[in-house]
């Protein structure tokens, strides 16, 4: 079991991981939501994070995004120990998050949401709405060419458009580590394909991505590595080409691999040896 947790053989051991989480714990009173999780993320790596609802994956991601303080454990970003006391801290370290709830202010328009908390300002400290609108138009057009209603409150937009704003907000700024919590849950097929393209593009740029998803197809299509949480613990971490969907399901449901499990790519591994 323990050697499987140190998978990720495809990545050079020499590169400093973007993120190193060590012994992360989160307690709510007597309830242990995250129980001693250690997890790495390397540049240009997409790691799928799976588990039941309440398995602790969202909690772990919220800790990394600064929305929640861990009870114990440390986080290193590019080798340095950091304090993630607030979402601002996380952003300052290049950690951007796309929340499942999207975290949009419904009464504000798309540019206001995109720049919320880091508004562009003129020399006199006024809001530079013109420039924010122009920038928003640019970045939204790259994600969805049909996005034209930039001045409407986002409450009046479709689920897909709202998702696009949340994604745009994460990638517009200097992102190094991207956390995506169910990014395709609200999307139709073409928009899902767009997100998949985007993930590949970001990976090629050396950005590390945690992809929290229930969609096995997405996970196997996009991820380099998959980690599974069960009852707050990390119960499995595998390169995507050494497991089958059934192996992952077993990890999610029972917290362990099937007893007869052999790496899917055993032949390749032995040939390489």
């Amino acid at each position: 079991m323990s050697q499987t947790l140190q998978a990720a053989a495809r990545f050079d051991a020499e590169t400093t991981p973007l993120v190193e989480m060590r012994g992360i714990e989160k307690h709510f009173g007597g309830v242990v939501a995250v129980d001693g999780v250690s997890l790495d993320l390397r540049p240009g790596e997409v790691v799928g994070v799976l588990g039941h609802n309440g398995a602790g994956k969202s909690c772990l991601m919220r800790i990394l995004s600064g929305a929640m303080a861990p009870s114990r454990g440390e986080i290193r970003i590019a080798g340095d120990v950091v304090e993630m006391g607030s979402p601002q801290d996380a952003r300052a370290h290049g950690v951007e998050t796309i929340y499942q709830t999207l975290a949009l202010a419904d009464h504000l328009d798309a540019p206001s949401n995109l720049f919320l908390g880091r508004e562009l300002k003129t020399r006199f400290g006024n809001l530079d709405d013109k420039r924010m609108l122009a920038e928003a138009r640019k970045v939204l057009a790259t994600l969805n060419p049909n996005f034209t209603n930039l001045k409407d409150p986002v409450s009046s937009l479709s689920g897909g458009q709202r998702q696009v704003i949340a994604i745009a907000r994460a990638i517009y700024f200097d992102v190094k580590i991207l956390i995506m919590d169910e990014p395709t849950a609200a999307l139709g097929p073409s928009e899902t394909a767009m997100v998949a393209d985007l993930i590949r593009k970001l990976r090629a740029q050396g950005i590390g991505i945690f992809l929290v998803s229930h969609d096995m197809h997405d996970v196997f299509d996009l991820c380099d590595r998959v980690v599974v949480m069960n009852k707050g613990k990390l119960v499995g971490a595998h390169d995507i080409d050494e497991v089958h969907k059934d192996d992952i399901l077993s990890l999610i449901i029972k917290g362990e691999l099937p007893t007869d499990w052999r790496p899917r790519n055993l032949g390749e591994l032995e040939a390489a040896r």
Partner: peptide
């Protein structure tokens, strides 16, 4: 309220407090 960041943050806070917080407001 219209031209300064504090105004935008006042609206954002009332619109969705959690979203505003996660956005760094």
């Amino acid at each position: 309220l219209r031209r300064r960041a504090i105004g935008r943050h006042i609206y954002a806070t009332g619109s969705n407090e959690e979203a505003a917080r996660l956005s760094g407001v």
